[in-house]
Design a protein around this nucleic acid. Structure first.
Length: 444
RNA sequence: GCGGGGAUAGCCUAGCGGUAGGGCGACGGCCUGCUAAGCCGUUAUCCGAAAGGAUUCGAGGGUUCGAAUCCCUCUCCCCGCGCCA
């Protein structure tokens, strides 16, 4: 949520932001008009209430002297009618103003490139040596801007979809039977691989001073609304029937809401949390995309980085959490590119966002595995989280980034590390996984 | 699930129909060679240029001229009992 004072004092900045996001700048003026009406009526209301309060005190003192107060009582009753009427107007206008305010997206960072959609995202960095099948070379050169190492391979690796079903590493058919599409039973070595990935990511973050947290997997509407925006709510969040509870789509949500309605002491910043949780997503509007396998699913596990910090530090911490995520993917030997998400693709909550996309040799393209965002004070305002500062209170900035999303990383490992009938396990995972490789052999 | 007790500004606590009081902590000031003590002030939100005003006693209703206080509904916490991985 934006600061209403920013909109009052610098409407032009907010209009420009709307334009850059390809949204209607007129929203700003709608808010300003409602805000003006609200304040006018509020002043009328407060004058009436002041009159009432004075009258009540008059009654009180007259009663002590034993005087008759019937006239004054009638006056207060009349005032109450006026107050009730104006109260309703004030309340209605405020609700309307706030609903516009809550829908307004975050201010974009100056570094966010202008763009219409995901095609305008800007690759800024590349790492690793991609295995590229010759038919994919043209696309690879385009997507990597020719700035990334690669080796040509003669045969396209098998898709994870085929491998997991054929070697009984996951069962999406039976999952479909009992839960519907986009669900899976992980089986055999993939169960350990998933846990190994989580432990590896968690330990990586712990070594950097993050506090491990396993949050609630459901939140009330109030907490969820503070952590996310309306469009996410509609497209991704599952509701529990007959309860005021919503399934989290990422541990970012409960970690953002962790300090709801609290004051954080300034000297405890930055707060760095490593969340670990399942994530539940409706994937509405993704019909036809990644319909098979475990790349795009309704439920997966994730280790997440979440930081509360002083507003001056958020730019630096965005780079830091991106680096943390990069280190994880480097250690997993998965070649990737970093993209700077453009203004048309960034979403309402983020002020700036980087994605890490791993090169997937079987699919012949880069696919998102990590998303790192600077949210600034957008969530902390919605969740009423403030810092008690030496020179006054303020809203902290929050940032979030994936460390490991298990299913997508498993896909990346299967595509990148498959050799003749084995999947190689990257070095740092071995101690958690307990074996050097997954042997691909047909189960009966 | 049943019974009992709670929720008052950052924390603790009083008030139990008539303008929310005290303590702690924090911050600022006075005093002081420095520190401590002591004294004064500030320390929830909103409107207002300011003066000032309004709101706020877990949430929402009700009674009343007036509700932290009385009544109803709900949420959460604590102590028993029951059930339970």
């Amino acid at each position: 949520m934006l600061d209403i004072n920013l909109i009052r004092n610098n409407p032009e900045v907010v209009r420009e932001n709307q334009k850059k996001r390809n949204l209607d700048p007129g929203e700003v003026d709608r808010i300003l008009e409602l805000d003006r009406i609200w304040r006018e009526n509020l002043q009328v209301l407060e004058r009436l209430r002041n009159l009432k309060n004075r009258k009540i005190m008059e009654i009180s003192s007259k009663m002590k002297k034993g005087e008759n107060v019937d006239i004054e009582k009638e006056e207060v009753k009349k005032l109450n009618e006026d107050i009730e009427r104006i109260e309703k107007i004030v309340e209605d206008v405020k609700v309307k103003r706030d609903s516009f305010l809550w829908r307004m997206p975050n201010l974009l960072d100056d570094d966010v490139p202008y763009g219409k959609d995901e095609n305008d995202n800007v690759p800024i960095r590349f790492w690793g040596k991609a295995k590229v099948f010759k038919d994919d070379l043209e696309n690879f050169m385009k997507e990597s801007r020719g700035k990334m190492d690669y080796v040509l391979i003669e045969k396209r690796p098998d898709s994870h979809t085929d491998i997991i079903e054929k070697f009984d590493l996951a069962d999406t058919l039976r999952a479909g039977k009992v839960a519907g599409s986009r669900f899976y039973y992980l089986k055999n070595d993939l169960v350990r691989l998933e846990i190994a990935l989580e432990m590896f990511a968690l330990d990586h973050l712990l070594s950097k001073g993050f506090i491990p947290v396993e949050p609630p997997f459901m939140l009330t509407r109030r907490a969820m609304e503070g952590a996310t925006d309306l469009s996410t709510f509609e497209d991704t969040i599952y509701k529990v029937e007959n309860e005021d509870l919503y399934l989290i789509a990422t541990s970012e949500h409960p970690l953002a809401a962790y300090h709801m309605d609290e004051f954080i002491e300034e000297n405890s910043l930055p707060l760095k949390y490593a969340g670990i949780s399942p994530c539940f997503r409706k994937e509405a509007g993704a019909h036809g995309k990644d319909t098979k396998g475990i790349f795009r699913v309704h439920q997966f596990n994730k280790v997440e980085q979440f930081i509360y910090c002083h507003p001056d530090d958020s730019k630096r911490f965005l780079e830091e959490i991106l680096r943390n995520a990069e280190e994880i993917y480097q250690k997993l030997e998965l070649p990737y590119r970093i993209i700077n998400i453009c203004s048309g693709d960034i979403g309402n909550v983020a002020s700036k966002k980087y994605d890490i996309e791993v090169w997937m040799p079987a699919q012949g393209r880069f696919r998102e595995v990590v998303s790192a965002s600077n949210v600034r004070d957008y969530q902390s305002r919605r969740l009423n989280i403030r810092v008690r500062g030496k020179f006054g209170n303020y809203y902290p900035h929050t940032l979030n980034s994936t460390a490991i999303a298990t299913t997508r990383t498993i896909v990346a490992i299967i595509e990148n590390h498959q050799e003749n009938n084995i999947i190689k396990i990257p070095e740092p995972l071995k101690r958690y996984f307990g074996k050097e490789k997954i042997i691909l052999e047909k189960k009966i």
